[in-house]
Design a protein around this nucleic acid. Structure first.
Length: 286
DNA sequence: TACCAGGCCCCTA
DNA sequence: TAGGGGCATGGT
C-alpha cells in the first residue's frame, strides 16, 4: 500500500487498494457518514477522520495520522490477498466489485459492544443506537462524540441501554461490559482462535457469529468466517446443499479459505450490500 | 402493515 | 447435543 504522511494528513496513492465506500459500507464499522461526493467521516474511539478523494488519491485528515494508518491497516499489501482469493469464482466477482475494501484494525472494546448490539438487528439501527450511545455517554470533541470510556461504560445500567433503543440486548450489555473490562487484545494473544472464540462466547450476548466478528475486526484473526443470514443463503447457493447449522457452515468455509477466510467473507458481504443497494432484482447475481 | 435484520438465550426432548 | 420459540425496535 503506497501512502505518505504530511502533517495531520495521510495521502493514499493507490486507490485500487483503498476505497472508503467499500471499507465503510460493509458492516464492519457503524460510526461514519458520507458528507459529500467522495467525502466521508469516520469516528472510532477518541478520533475522527475525514476522507476526501482528490484526483487519483485519497486524503485522510485527522488529529492522529499514526492511529489511522493502523486503523486502516495501510501497511498490509492487499494485492497478494486478492490474488490468492481470486481462484474462488464467486469471491473473484466480489473482489472485482469491491476492490479497495480493507478490513479495519478496530479497537477491541468498541468492536465488542458494537457487535453485541448488532445481533438480529439491521445496520441502520445499529448506527442509530451507537450514535445515541456516544451522544449520551461519550465526550464532545470538536464537533463529534467520542466512544465512551470503559469507566463510563461500566456505569451504564439496563435502563440506559433500553432508553437508547438497544431492545432486549439491554439485558446482556451491562454484564458483558463487566467481563470485557477484564480483557484486552493482549489477553487473547497466546490463545488459538478456537480458544479465543470460546472465551468470547462465555460472555452474555455473544454467540458464535458475534464472536467471529469480534475476532475478525477487533482481534485481527483472519481464520474466521462470520455467518449471518446472507452468508448462509450464499453458502447454499455456491458451496453446499446439505442443510447445516451456521456454526458448521462457518467451519466448512474456513476449511476452504483458511487464513484468508475473514477477507473472503468481507468481500462477499460487501458485494451483497452493494447489490441490495441497487435493488433486490440484482440479488440473484449472488 | 407485515416482515426483516451482521443472533442469542433458554427450555425441551 | 440439537432443535425451535421468543425476543425490542426501527427500516422497508
Amino acid at each position: 500500500m503506497k501512502y505518505s504522511i504530511s502533517g495531520n494528513k495521510i495521502i493514499v496513492s493507490q486507490p485500487d487498494d483503498f476505497n472508503p465506500q467499500h471499507i465503510l459500507d460493509c458492516g464492519q464499522v457503524f460510526r461514519f457518514s458520507k458528507i459529500g461526493e467522495d467525502v466521508f467521516e469516520v469516528r472510532v474511539g477518541d478520533y475522527q477522520a475525514t476522507i476526501t478523494k482528490i484526483k487519483d488519491t485519497y486524503e485522510i485528515l485527522s488529529g492522529n495520522p499514526q492511529f489511522f494508518v493502523k486503523y486502516f491497516d495501510l501497511d498490509t499489501d492487499y494485492s497478494k490477498i486478492k490474488r490468492k482469493l481470486r481462484k474462488h469464482g464467486i469471491v473473484s466477482v466480489a473482489i472485482t466489485a469491491g476492490t479497495g475494501l480493507r478490513i479495519l484494525n478496530a479497537p477491541f472494546l468498541e468492536t465488542a459492544v458494537s457487535f453485541i448490539i448488532s445481533a438480529n438487528n439491521n445496520i441502520k439501527r445499529i448506527q442509530l443506537i451507537l450514535n445515541r450511545l456516544c451522544e449520551k455517554a461519550g465526550q464532545e470533541k470538536g464537533g463529534f462524540f467520542t466512544f465512551p470510556t470503559l469507566e463510563k461504560l461500566l456505569q451504564l445500567d439496563q435502563e440506559f441501554w433500553k432508553r437508547i433503543g438497544a431492545g432486549y440486548r439491554a439485558n446482556y450489555l451491562p454484564g458483558a461490559i463487566q467481563e470485557l473490562a477484564k480483557l484486552d487484545k493482549d489477553s487473547f494473544k497466546d490463545l488459538t482462535t478456537k480458544e479465543a472464540r470460546n472465551k468470547l462466547i462465555a460472555l452474555p450476548g455473544i454467540g458464535p457469529k458475534v464472536a467471529d466478528c469480534i475476532l475478525l475486526f477487533g482481534l485481527q484473526r483472519f481464520d474466521v468466517f462470520p455467518v449471518d443470514v446472507w452468508i448462509e443463503k450464499l453458502y447454499y447457493k455456491h458451496f453446499g446443499k446439505e442443510v447445516l447449522p451456521r456454526t458448521k457452515i462457518a467451519e466448512k468455509l474456513v476449511e476452504i479459505f483458511g487464513d484468508l477466510s475473514g477477507y473472503a467473507q468481507q468481500y462477499l458481504f460487501n458485494y451483497r450490500q452493494a447489490l441490495s443497494n441497487y435493488g433486490d432484482n440484482l440479488m440473484d447475481l449472488l
